[in-house]
Amino acid sequence: MIEFKNVSKVYDNGSVALDDVCLTINDGEFVLVCGHSGAGKSTLFKLLTHEVVPDTGTVIVDDFDVTRMKRSKIPKLRRKLGVVFQDFRLLPNKTVAENIA
């Protein structure tokens, strides 16, 4: 399960990415996130993977409270998520199979 409880994120430049978002995605649900540029889609995913932390609210992924997660636990969280990034994040010195692994 993924749960956002009253999550807000404002970047240093004053850009409001998310404002008091409440969202629950239950196990087995398939969800598509769409919206115009600047709507907060990327921020939503960055919050799930602990690339950024919310200014307010709580992000829960399965049993992980992502907002209070220790740095050492982040890799375990990310192994539970399947994310396809827009910029691929491929390692140039690895083969396709190695990048997938």
Score class of each variant (00 low, 15 high):
50 H>S: 11
35 G>T: 12
63 D>I: 00
17 A>T: 06
61 V>I: 13
58 T>W: 01
14 G>S: 03
54 P>T: 04
48 L>R: 11
52 V>D: 13
8 S>Q: 03
54 P>Q: 08
58 T>N: 02
42 S>P: 11
7 V>L: 03
57 G>E: 01
37 S>C: 04
45 F>W: 09
16 V>H: 03
23 L>D: 03
16 V>S: 01
38 G>A: 10
58 T>R: 05
23 L>F: 06
60 I>K: 09
56 T>P: 02
18 L>F: 09
12 D>M: 05
39 A>Q: 04
51 E>T: 12
66 V>D: 00
28 G>S: 14
17 A>Y: 05
34 C>R: 15
52 V>S: 14
50 H>A: 14
35 G>D: 08
7 V>F: 07
15 S>K: 13
28 G>F: 11
22 C>S: 15
48 L>I: 12
11 Y>W: 05
27 D>P: 10
43 T>A: 06
14 G>K: 04
31 V>P: 07
19 D>M: 03
10 V>E: 11
32 L>E: 13
19 D>V: 05
12 D>P: 04
31 V>Y: 11
34 C>K: 15
9 K>I: 01
43 T>R: 04
8 S>H: 01
37 S>V: 08
52 V>P: 01
57 G>Q: 02
41 K>H: 06
41 K>G: 09
61 V>K: 03
19 D>L: 08
40 G>M: 07
52 V>L: 06
58 T>Y: 00
31 V>A: 12
22 C>Y: 09
8 S>V: 02
8 S>D: 01
13 N>A: 07
22 C>L: 05
37 S>L: 04
58 T>A: 02
19 D>C: 10
12 D>H: 13
38 G>C: 10
44 L>W: 03
14 G>R: 05
64 F>K: 01
65 D>W: 00
38 G>T: 08
33 V>K: 09
53 V>C: 02
36 H>M: 11
30 F>N: 15
25 I>D: 07
35 G>I: 07
16 V>Y: 03
65 D>F: 00
21 V>I: 15
59 V>A: 01
58 T>M: 04
40 G>L: 09
14 G>W: 02
9 K>F: 00
47 L>M: 09
13 N>K: 13
7 V>N: 05
20 D>L: 10
21 V>F: 10
23 L>H: 02
22 C>E: 10
64 F>P: 01
27 D>K: 15
36 H>F: 12
11 Y>P: 06
42 S>E: 10
